[in-house]
């Protein structure tokens, strides 16, 4: 029996509803993703990939429909509980990394653990483990603004994984990387898949979605999934 960790049921997301600049980014879309799979959402710019990823990542709520993450109807949860669920279960790698420029790599990585009330000793232990895993130990005290693109990306992945989430979402992770860094990124993603993470990536980069490790590819156009 399929074990769906992500379920999207007839979801529509409209921004600026009732205003002249109203946009329906996702239209009546349904989607199911199994545990431990690597799924790519591809499509041209403006097709609704990022909005759909934001809905799955509990960054926003749908206008209509249902989003179920690990059996919980997150679209119905009050903000507070939705954030709790997000922190526990979802790691998010943003397109522009969204690292805090004035803070060190170590502090950026540890940041998601602070609201969890985890002791500072444990925070350091987990962060150091990830710094080692992503070959960033020598950069731990550096401000993130002084890192190279590849290092920033590895720091962003490390931060997404610090809570040990079951689901990892990445929005155009290779958009600002050269082919060598993209390849390194895919190696990291491959290892994460092997360790049991469910991974959902949005990308229009063939280097990403043509890899054999990808289990499913969904193509989006005008806010709808047109092929899978």
């Amino acid at each position: 029996m399929d074990n769906h960790v992500i379920e999207i049921i007839n979801v529509t997301k409209t921004y600026n509803k009732g205003k002249p600049n109203e946009v329906t980014a996702v239209k009546d879309t349904s989607l199911e993703i199994n545990e431990g799979s690597l799924v790519v959402l591809k499509g041209s710019s403006g097709s609704g990939k990022t909005t759909l990823l934001s809905l799955i990542g509990c960054q926003t709520k749908p206008t209509t429909g249902e989003v179920i993450i690990q059996g919980k109807k997150v679209s119905k949860l009050p903000e507070k509980f939705m954030n709790l669920h997000k922190r526990k279960n979802i790691g998010f790698i943003f397109q522009h990394f969204q690292l805090i420029a004035g803070m060190s790599v170590l502090d950026n990585i540890m940041l998601p653990l602070i609201p969890e009330g985890i002791s500072s000793k444990e925070r350091y232990r987990r962060a150091n483990q990830l710094l080692e895993q992503f070959n960033l130990t020598h950069r731990r005290e550096f401000k993130t603004s002084s890192l190279s693109g590849g290092e920033q990306q590895r720091a962003a992945i490390a931060r997404a994984l610090i809570n040990n989430p079951g689901i990892l979402l990445a929005d155009e992770p290779s958009a600002h990387l050269d082919s060598e860094l993209t390849s390194s990124l895919l190696d990291h993603i491959s290892r994460l898949k092997q360790s049991g993470h469910t991974i959902l990536i949005t990308s229009h980069d063939p280097d990403v979605y043509q890899k054999s490790m990808v289990d499913h590819i969904f193509e989006m156009k005008n806010g709808q999934i047109i092929s899978s």
Partner: peptide
């Protein structure tokens, strides 16, 4: 209507907060 996944219910949920 808590069980509804319609637009109005989502608006009311936002409003109640």
């Amino acid at each position: 209507d808590y069980n509804s996944t319609g637009e109005n219910q989502f608006l009311l949920e936002k409003k109640t907060y």
